[in-house]
Write a protein that binds this DNA or RNA. Structure first.
Lengths: 251, 251
DNA sequence: CGCAGAATTGATACATCTCAAGCTGGGTGG
DNA sequence: CCACCCAGCTTGAGATGTATCAATTCTGCG
């Protein structure tokens, strides 16, 4: 707690030019003069792992991009059942122009840095800056595709396929980030707890644990500790995920 | 088949001004001069119930709005498992600007009339007409919300809750369409077969059938034939769906 | 009439959940 | 420095919800 407030008081100030998500975020298409205007209304906020960014139903007077770290969007039923409905990665956008309360709980999974804009000025700027709304449309369409792929997973895949799919997705993103020579040997860290995976996959954490153990036993994945995963044969993992061959890594 | 081709040869010609989806579709915000230009590049197509509009992966050189009828967006796995990932109602938009193959199978559930635009001219028009892309962004954000609500259903709801949710959604939309005085007595037609419901809900058709029978037995719904449903107490249905009280009908 | 597609119902199998116990590793305080 | 503690995780045994396979029934239609 105290640590978090220290961090968020110590506001980062960064040039958009140096920003790690400059070419992927909602501002990706902006020209220099547009960036300059964004720069005037932006501010950074940081959140510790586990911290809640905003609760569903709360007033939300800003929109934001994830700069670093991972956050989750979750929905909760009255009796406590929870479903993660989105995973926010660097460059992903939070908030909906034209709505002023949050529709979902947003939680920092790892430490997170966000680039925020007050909603009002941002909306005004959107009207004057088609490049922003065009980019936002593109990103929203991508998210919709991702949500629909997730619907197939939730509705029709077995527990084993769900786990394999999740690991494949994380592996892909990891490979994308550090654009290093592939090889057939991918190693990375799972950023999610078993419980968060369960929330994402529509399973219980026990089932998640059992299926990870099973994939390990079958040599589909190797585990170093609880979180570090190595994939000896990516194609085999994809097969276990029930997806057709490529899935977008190559294309 | 022959009936379909007769219909689709006999192209409807309609003024945008009289269009039933004029104020809800992607063109909702357009001014008269913009409508005039759209009118030049639009054409109508019709599909019979059961007909496939387009297959996933096919080249798609148009975008379209559903004018009347209902269509489905489905994803299929290699072994035949299917998940519906979207239900296209009048005014909903089909196709993604900037992509030229279909991502999903689109199937007409009832007879459908679509208002089509060739993709190229439409995309050019989008660039010049912010009102169109703004409206499309808004619609896409709504669809994303719907998809996320569906993720909660698929991941966390029981079979009974799933059925109750689906019936509630159809009832709400029906009530919206014919804006008649509510009363507590809603009656409408289920446009989906048991199998289509199963595809939507991530269930088997047998489970769908059993749960509908159970809801009927418990007096949550009344059935006239297989398809016509009456809801004696909407709040009770909502309770069965596991949603919190309102869900948007009132708000 | 009788057929075909749609729906219902039954019996059984099986995947996942639930409840419960125990393990592991890293941090903390005595 | 050790013992303890606790969150995160694993594993087991049994319960349960849904799928599967199979047999009828319903309904509209040629």
């Amino acid at each position: 707690m105290s640590k978090a407030s220290i961090i968020s008081d110590n506001l980062v100030s960064q040039e958009c030019g140096d920003c790690p998500i400059r070419h992927r975020a909602v501002c990706a298409r902006c020209e220099q003069d547009e960036l300059d205007r964004l720069e005037e209304i932006k501010y950074y906020r940081t959140f510790e792992a586990g911290q809640t960014v905003i609760w569903s139903g709360d007033r939300m007077d800003f929109v934001a991009s994830v700069v670093t770290g991972i956050a989750s969007l979750t929905q909760t039923m009255e009796d406590g059942r929870r479903q993660m409905v989105g995973l926010l990665l660097p460059s992903d956008f939070i908030g909906r122009p034209g709505r002023n309360t949050a529709a979902y709980d947003v939680t920092a999974i790892t430490d997170v840095v966000m680039c925020c804009f007050r909603k009002k000025p941002f909306e005004e700027m959107m009207l004057r800056t088609p490049r922003i709304s065009q980019r936002l449309l593109e990103m929203t369409l991508d998210e919709l595709d991702a949500a629909r792929e997730w619907m197939l997973l939730l509705g029709r895949k077995t527990a084993r396929e769900k786990i394999a799919s999740l690991i494949a997705i994380i592996a892909r993103r990891d490979a994308e980030l550090r654009l290093r020579s592939a090889g057939n040997d991918l190693t990375f860290e799972l950023p999610l707890t078993r419980e968060a995976m369960a929330d994402y996959l529509g399973l219980t954490l026990e089932t998640v644990s059992r299926q990870i153990s099973a994939l390990k036993r079958d040599g589909i994945i190797l585990l170093e500790g609880k979180r570090q995963v190595t994939i000896p044969d990516f194609d085999r993992l994809i097969e276990e995920a029930g997806d057709d061959a490529d899935g977008g890594l190559l294309s």
